[in-house]
Design a protein around this nucleic acid. Sequence first.
DNA 1: AAAGGGTGCAACCGCATTACC
DNA 2: AGGTAATGCGGTTGCACCCTT
Length: 305
Amino acid sequence: MGRAPCCDKANVKKGPWSPEEDEKLREYIEKNGTGGNWIALPQKAGLKRCGKSCRLRWLNYLRPNLKHGEFSEDEDRIICTLYASIGSRWSIIASQLPGRTDNDIKNYWNTKLKKKMMGMNPSALKKPHQVNLSPMLQNSTPSSSFKNNHNSYFQPHLPFTGSESISYSSLPSDNYSTFESLQNYQVSSVFMETSCSSSSDGSCNNNQINHVKEAELGYVGDGTFGDQIIGRLSYLNSGVEDQDTLKLVPSNAGRVSGVTDEETRLWGESPLEYGLEEIKQLISNSSCNNFMLDDSKTGEMVMYY
DNA sequence: AAAGGGTGCAACCGCATTACC
DNA sequence: AGGTAATGCGGTTGCACCCTT
C-alpha cells in the first residue's frame, strides 16, 4: 500500500498559477503568515491548491526579495565551487546566494551553467590525470556503513594511497573570463567522481565511497574574478588547516539540528546557514558528488587533478 | 508563414526526514 | 518507542516561447 496523498487530488487545481491565485496567496501570507501549516493554508486562503503547491509557489516565486534574471559571475563561481564540493545539494547552495532559490539554481545549472562548462573543453576536464579506482569499490556496500547521529550513513573510508590532503590551486589573477577561469580551476583541482547508479527516484545507490572527510573552500580578494580561491579537501585523518575559508555557520533553521551553543558562538558571524559539522556530513554522505557531468555513469570512480 | 526542434523555467512527484502525538 | 502527518528536498516533466529551416 502506498503513501496516502497529501491532499485530495481530485479537488485541487494543478498547473500554472494565475495572477489571481498569486495575489490570494501573497495577500494571505502577508496578512497571516504561513501559520506553520501549509496543508491547511490553501483552504484558509481560498485556494483550490495543494499545500505543497502553495509552499512551492511562495518559496520559489512570490516570496519577497527574490532575485530573478541573470546570474552574476560571482554567483556562477559560488555555484560551481559548491557543486564541486557538495554536489547537487541545491538548498545548501541556494543558502549562499541571497534571493536565489534552490529551484532557480538547479534549473540554471541544468540548462545553462553545465552546458557552458561542458562547452569550454570537456576533454580537458577528464584527461590530465585520470585514476581508475573502481577495484577499490567492490567491497563497499551499504551494509558495512554505519549510521551517524543524524540518521544518515557514513561510508567507511577505504585506504587511499593518493594524496591524503589536496590543496586547490589558485585562480590566475589575469583577465580570464569567468568560465576560462572556472575551467582552469576545475582542471587543476581535485574532484572525485563516484559511481552512481541512479534509482528510479533519482537517488543514487550507495555503492560508492566518498573519501572526502573535510572540505573547505573560500576566496581571497575583493570579489573580482581574479581572486584566489583557497580551499582544500582533506581526507580522513587529515587535519584542517586554518585558512581564510568560507565560513560555515550552524543554524537551527530548517532541517539542521544538533548544533550546540558553543558551535553557534564559534560560527556566529558567518553568513552561511549550515554548520561545519553539517557540511562535513553532507560531504561524507554525498553519494552523487559528480563533478563535471559524466552523464554516462560508468560505474567507475575517477579522480581528476 | 508554418512546422519542427530546442531551450528555459515553473510546477509536480515521490521519497527522506522531522515533528508531533 | 512507534505511528502518522507535515515539511523539505532533489529529480523529472510539461509546456510556452524562441529560433531555425
